[in-house]
Structures are given as structure tokens and as C-alpha cells.
Design a protein around this nucleic acid. Structure first.
Length: 282
DNA sequence: CTTTGGGCCTGGACGC
DNA sequence: TGCGTCCAGGCCCAAA
């Protein structure tokens, strides 16, 4: 499911429930995720107080009062569901891998049918050096990540700009959907070499990235396939997609005759689908 | 060093 | 209804 806006939505939903809460029990039903859930996961968490819930790139970071940190990732199909005290908590299904129960009676359930997600432990003091964290690029919604900074990071990069946007070392948090949408908004061809996205193009791209992510966040993320917010509401940014998943549809902004042009194209780059308008994007 | 492609998993959509 | 095929928002890792 989740790219930056979806993970941020999850993070914002979890924060008021978990921050300050003491973990009463952690039930692990499935240890086999992208990386195994560590054997001491339960022991390290129970009776600890959660002090902070944060996001870095597409990772959730849940910090404990003893300096422990849970690194969580939702993979492609991961979901967090919040049950407030008194809510009816359904019996766990086969994909409900971990329950975090806090003393107030609230419960957070991690589910992930495809098990590409992960839930592991580290320590706050060494978090920044953790293999999963240390190579992450800057956060695109950080205001000091400018077009010039992006251009600098793309220097010498021989891959396509589309593939570069998916590289978490260059920009953290973009996935296939928001990479496609950002390129469309900025009028840049996904096939352009990344190193040639400089100057005004890089500025426009960075503005597009930030506006797409901000609007998606305001919509509660995109609900395609099974992504829903932890409160059960559907995000609705998928209604705003201009190219993603719209192969053959007329381009929403150029008034070319789409019966002639064929409208939005789908191509494969580095094994991933890219959607774009060849007329608007150069 | 950089870049690409395979693989990890399951479920849903589609064609026959 | 059932079966096979293809596809999916991510990321690690081996290979080129």
C-alpha cells in the first residue's frame, strides 16, 4: 500500500493513541515477515511506555522509554487498525500478525497479507546508523529540500528520472504512484536521464513532489486495493490521480485529440509500470 | 561504484 | 464455478 502520505496518515493516527501509553501485551502470531520479528520482541515491549511515534521515509519509528525503537514498515499490503477501548475487536484473521495492547484498553493491530512489511527492534542511540535508515535521502516535505538540492542529488545519475525518484537514497518516501504523478505535474518525461533534470526542471519537479504529497496527505492518502486509514476511513487521493492507473484515458490537461494520441501511456521502467502523457511530458 | 532484474508473498481481476 | 495467468503501492540482494 503505502507511500509517504499513507505512512504519515498512519503515523498521525497512531500518535495520540500510543504516545504516553504503556504496553500491556504484544501478541505475535506470525514471526515470518520480510525480516523475522525478533524473538525478544514481546519481552522487550511489554510494560514499556511509548514516548514517540514518528515517520522516516516509509518507516514507522516507535520509540520506547528505555531507548528501544520499533522499526516498522507496511510493505505493500500492511495496515494498522486502531480499536479504542470498548470497541468490538474482531477475532484475529490469518493476516493479523501482531496486536499491540495498551493499558487503557486500546489496541493497535498490524495486518499484512503479503508479509512484505516488517517489525524489528533497535536502539535510539544507533537508529541513524541502522542499515535500513542510514542511506535514506532527505524528506521531500522538509522545506529546506529545494529544487537545487534535488538537482545536486541527481548529478551523475544515469538512470531515468522515474527510477531515480523511486530510489530512497535520493528522495525518501516516494513510491510508484507519487513518482508518476509528480513527473506529470512538472511536465517531465519519465524517460529523461536523471542527471539532465537540473535548474528550472528540478525546481518544478520538487514543487510538484511537494504539492502532490501535501494534497495526498490532506486527502488521508490514497485508498487503492486495501489501504485504509487506521480509523477505518478511506483516503480519497486516488480520485485525484491524473496518470497513475489511467492507461488509454485522455490526458487531463492537454487538449490533444486522444483518439489520435491514445492518451495516457503505460511503459515499464526498471520492472515497474510508469504512466505518463508523452505530449505533455518532455 | 551504479543499475537492473529476480524474488519474496497473497489476493484480486481477468480470460477461458 | 473453477482454473490459470497476470498484476500489485516496496525493498533486499545478487549479478552485470
Amino acid at each position: 500500500m503505502p507511500e509517504l502520505p499513507e505512512v504519515e496518515t498512519v503515523c498521525r493516527a497512531l500518535s495520540p493513541v500510543l504516545e504516553g501509553a504503556i504496553l500491556q501485551d504484544v501478541v505475535i502470531r506470525q514471526f515470518s515477515l520480510r525480516f523475522p520479528v525478533p524473538p525478544n520482541f514481546h519481552e522487550k515491549l511489554v510494560s514499556r511506555r511509548i514516548v514517540k511515534v514518528q515517520r522516516r521515509a516509509k518507516y514507522l519509528l516507535i520509540e520506547l522509554d528505555d531507548g528501544g525503537v520499533i522499526i516498522g514498515h507496511l510493505g505493500m499490503s500492511g495496515r494498522m487498525t486502531i480499536y479504542r477501548v470498548g470497541d468490538n475487536v474482531p477475532l484475529p484473521g490469518r493476516h493479523d500478525h501482531i496486536d499491540f495492547k495498551v493499558v487503557s484498553g486500546d489496541l493497535v493491530r498490524f495486518s499484512d497479507p503479503r508479509r512484505f512489511g516488517l517489525m524489528i527492534l533497535t536502539e535510539a542511540g544507533i537508529l541513524k546508523e541502522h542499515a535500513l535508515i542510514k542511506n535514506l535521502g532527505p524528506e521531500p516535505l522538509n522545506p529546506d529540500f529545494t529544487g537545487a538540492a534535488l538537482a545536486d542529488r541527481l548529478k551523475g545519475c544515469k538512470s531515468s528520472i522515474k527510477s531515480a525518484l523511486l530510489d530512497q537514497r535520493k528522495v525518501a518516501g516516494l513510491g510508484n504512484i507519487y513518482a508518476c504523478e509528480s513527473l506529470f505535474r512538472s511536465g517531465i518525461s519519465p524517460n529523461r536521464r536523471a542527471k539532465n533534470v537540473q535548474g528550472i526542471r528540478a525546481i518544478k519537479l520538487m514543487q510538484a513532489v511537494q504539492s502532490v504529497l501535501t494534497e495526498a496527505l490532506e486527502a488521508g492518502g490514497s485508498s487503492i486495493r486495501d489501504h485504509i486509514q487506521p480509523n477505518g476511513k478511506l483516503g480519497y487521493f486516488q480520485k485525484c490521480f491524473q496518470v497513475y492507473g489511467r492507461e488509454g484515458a485522455p490526458c487531463p490537461t492537454c487538449n490533444c485529440d486522444w483518439l489520435v494520441t491514445g492518451g495516457i501511456k503505460r511503459i515499464i521502467q526498471a520492472g515497474r509500470s510508469t504512466f505518463y502523457c508523452p505530449r505533455k511530458q518532455r
